[in-house]
């Protein structure tokens, strides 16, 4: 399997029409690491992810992918959003197969491989179902299966589990950690869920939205996995992060 890519932001900022600004400056993401961008809405965490994915262009600065400057769609990245990852007019199996068609497989081989990938995530019997007939959790599992089918070196996730219920979210987090371990990909994930960040990340990039979007702090989480939410160390970190985010919210919402 492919080894993860390194990602470096250099002097990066993004200015939006209407005055919103995100100042990132420099940020290095190590190969095969699991980095979480954590912050309240408006702090620019999705902007940063979109720039990493090549979906948005920075106003200043640039992005290095394995040390090389790139722009546009990153060659070996896979993306998963909060929802609507699957095309509603295609069945589950077609949604995966379309990703394989452009990797040298013909239609028949792509379909067979897609069916196998569906079976791997336990959804073989739903191959012919359209997304509307599947639950949100099932759709995200299919999206994850499809992303892995691309054999990405960089996996970009924008609040992938935010629309799921707590139990499904926990199971999906486990599945994601397994996928990260076996694929060796670098993971960059956006979330506003502090507990999720603490359970998953090697490193939490804590972002603030005042006075403009920026990186407030970077925390290395050097704890073994699987982690327990109730462990003393996590509870301590959780309290500190919660205090920070509450302070942020107070400022942003003018409490």
């Amino acid at each position: 399997m492919s080894r993860g890519a390194t990602l470096s932001f250099r002097g990066l900022s993004k200015q939006f029409e209407g005055g919103t600004r995100v100042e990132v400056g420099d940020l290095d993401i190590k190969a095969a690491s699991f980095t979480v961008l954590l912050g309240r809405s408006g702090c620019g965490k999705s902007t940063l992810l979109n720039i990493a994915a090549g979906l948005q262009q920075p106003s200043t600065g640039h992005l290095l992918y394995d040390g090389q400057a790139v722009s546009g769609n990153q060659p070996d990245s896979a993306l998963i959003f909060q929802q609507n990852n699957l095309f509603p007019w295609m069945s589950a199996v077609e949604n995966i197969a379309i990703a394989l068609l452009n990797r040298g497989l013909d239609r028949e081989a792509a379909t067979r491989r897609a069916e196998q990938l569906l079976a791997d995530v336990g959804l073989a019997e739903f191959a012919r179902h359209r997304p509307a007939a599947l639950s949100g959790g099932m759709c995200q599992r299919i999206a994850l299966a499809r992303a892995l089918a691309l054999e990405p070196r960089l996996l970009l996730l924008d609040e992938p589990f935010s629309a799921l219920d707590a139990q499904t979210r926990r199971l999906m987090q486990d599945q994601l950690l397994r996928a990260w371990n076996t694929s060796g990909a670098t993971v960059l994930m956006v979330t506003h869920d502090l507990q999720e960040a603490l359970l998953l990340a090697d490193r939490i990039v804590l972002m603030a939205s005042t006075p403009h979007g920026r990186i407030a702090q970077i925390l290395e989480i050097d704890l073994p996995r699987p982690r327990q939410v109730r462990s003393a160390q996590l509870l301590d970190l959780q309290e500190r992060l919660d205090a920070f985010l509450t302070h942020e919210t107070r400022l942003a919402e003018h409490f």
């Binding site: 994915a53 959003f81 095309f87 295609m90 379309i98 990703a99 452009n102 499809r146 691309l150």
Partner: peptide, 27 residues
């Protein structure tokens, strides 16, 4: 069309023709 579908299609390395035939027109 929700731009996210186009972003996903590009991320899946769809060609311009595929984006038309399999994403835009069905959408």
């Amino acid at each position: 069309i929700d731009p996210q579908y186009l972003n996903i299609a590009r991320n899946l390395r769809c060609t311009r023709q595929q984006i038309w035939l399999r994403v835009r027109l069905p959408a």
